[in-house]
Structure formats: C-alpha cells, structure tokens
C-alpha cells in the first residue's frame, strides 16, 4: 500500500476517533445535567409519595402533619399564575411589538432596550420590594392575589419582551413585504402575519417566564404570602347580580413554594414529608403547564406554511 495513503487513512481514523470522543464528552455533560435533575425529582418523590393522595390536595394546612394538605396553596398558585399571565403577556408582547416594529432607532429606544435587557437579570427580591412599595402601599392593593400576580408579572415581563422580539425578528422579511404589497397596513401585517408566525417563540418566552414565576417565593414573601391560610378565595361567580365578582383578586393567599418553606422550617419531621409531597405537586403543575404550552406551540408550528 502507498505509505501516503496509509498515513491519510490513519489521519482520518484519528480524527474520526476525536469526533467520536467529543460526542461522548457531550453525552456525559448532558447526562450529568439530566441525572442531577432526575435524582432531585426521585429524592423528592421518595420522600413525599406516602402523602400524595386525594385528601392531600383537598385539605387545608393544619398543625397536624397527617391532616395537613395543600388545597389553599395550590389554588393560590393557580390563581396567582392566572393574574400573572393575563397581565404580563399582553404587556410584554405589546411592548415587544412596539420596540421591534414601531419605535424609531434613537437614543431613547436604545435606552429602553438596555433597560429591558438588564431588567431580566435583576434579583427577584428587588421586584418584591418594588411590589411592596408600589402595589401594596402606594396603590393600596394590600397583600392580595392581585398584588402577587402583578409582582410576578413585572418579574417575567423582560423575559417575555426579549423572547417576543427575537421571534418577531426571525420572521423572513419577504412575508412582511408580501403583506405590504397587498395593501395591508402595518397593524394588519403584524396581527395577521407576524404574530401568528412568531407565536411559537412567544409561547417559549411565556413558558420560561411562567415556570420561573410559579416556583418563586422571594417577591411574595415581601408582600406577606408567608401566612397560614385555611380558606379559598371567594368564587368569581356569585348568586346575586351582577353574578361576576372580583373579590377573589383582593383575597389573602398563599402559594405552593411558600407552603413548602413553612413546612420545612417546622420541628416535626412529618411536616418535612409534607413539604416533599408539595414539591412533587409543584413540579407536576410546572410540567403540566410546560407540556400544555409545548403542545400549543407544536400545533401552531404545524400550521405554518411559508
């Protein structure tokens, strides 16, 4: 055999081996992250599975660990998330559309952009203090579901703005031009083309934001969520006219991560089991939320035909 050919083959084999090696290294890195998460989930589940049953979800917190449940806290988490989503998504998407599609490029826009990017990195306690000063005291909303939802909405707003802008930018320019060519106004172009096409990316931003918000305790502790609550917010539908009530927005509340925190700091170890069980429920809630959003995103992307 030609020695040069052999040399070449050896070189190729060596590089293939390197390639292979790097793939393995990447796999190890991935597995470390996945296994850590898996171990944490398994540990939580093993600690808490004995309390995971229907009564745990349908009873109020109690000083008796075996009777204590998470009814008020999971309902609290759900309604706070609802307020957060309803207020953060339109604000965030609206701001992103303005910045991306309407705003002129000048120093003011640059300043706003710089601020939005930096806001994403502000520690959550700052948002808590802001919410305490602004919503609880200045606007007089008190320590309520509304204040909590708005505080978390403020916190995830930058994430939604950044994600929305990224996905608006990803829409090919010929889509816009085609819409304009057919005589669409800017808003029709945005609402009929840009938003539908970028909805997948927007959803991703919303998912990431909501997943962070549901596990967040710090901003809620400052507005007084660390509280024993053994009742549900008043229902939104009432028997007497006008049949719709917004009292629930003004109700005191607690949320799952704070209920966990409360149980962890108790002397009786039976409460630590409850905390683990509540952790499992919190994780399931997050997974359900993410799963639903990923499903929606899949459905939307399927329909997009450039």
């Amino acid at each position: 055999m030609d020695p040069r050919l052999a040399e070449l083959r050896a070189l190729i084999a060596r590089h293939k081996w390197n390639d292979h090696l790097f793939a393995r290294l990447g796999l190890v890195c991935t597995m470390i992250a996945v296994l850590m998460l898996f171990a944490a989930i398994l540990d939580l589940f093993l600690d808490g599975y004995q309390r995971l049953d229907g009564t745990f979800l349908t009873s109020y917190p109690s000083r008796h660990p075996e009777r204590a449940g998470i009814l008020s806290s999971w309902v609290g988490s759900a309604v706070v998330m609802l307020v957060t989503m309803v207020s953060a998504v339109p604000l965030g998407v609206g701001a992103a559309i303005y910045l991306e599609e309407y705003a002129d490029k000048n120093w003011l826009t640059n300043l706003i952009e710089l601020n939005v990017t930096n806001l994403a990195g502000v520690p959550s306690i700052i948002y808590g203090l802001l919410a305490l000063g602004l919503f609880v005291h200045m606007l007089g909303l008190g320590e309520t579901i509304l204040s909590a939802g708005l505080a978390l909405a403020l916190m995830i707003l930058p994430m939604i703005i950044v994600a929305t802008r990224e996905s608006l930018r990803a829409v090919p320019v010929h889509i816009r031009e085609a819409a304009y060519a057919l005589g669409a106004t800017r808003w029709r172009m945005i609402s009929d083309h840009l938003l539908p096409y970028s909805m997948g990316g927007i959803m991703t931003g919303v998912i990431i934001g909501m997943a962070r918000a549901i596990g967040e305790t710090t901003p809620l502790i400052t507005i007084g969520a660390l509280t024993f609550i053994a009742f549900l917010p008043p229902p939104p539908i009432t028997a007497e006219p006008p049949f719709l009530s917004v009292d629930w927005l003004m109700s005191p509340f607690t949320v799952l991560p704070i209920q966990m925190f409360n149980w962890i700091s108790r002397p009786e170890s039976a409460f630590h089991v409850n905390a683990a069980a509540a952790g499992v429920v919190l994780m399931i809630m997050t997974l359900l939320m993410n799963g639903f959003a990923i499903y929606l995103r899949y459905q939307i992307r399927k329909k997009i035909k450039w």
């Binding site: 309803v86 207020s87 998504v89 339109p90 609206g94 009929d192 938003l195 927005l249």
Partner: peptide
Amino acid sequence: KHWGWPDVFLKNLCAAGAI
C-alpha cells in the same frame, strides 16, 4: 378564517383592561 391567535391576543388585552 385565520388561526385565531390575534384574537387571543386581543382577548388578553381586554382581560388586562378588565383588571
């Protein structure tokens, strides 16, 4: 006839208005 996403967006805007 569209996919309805702008409508959801509008609905959210309205909900925010309600708040």
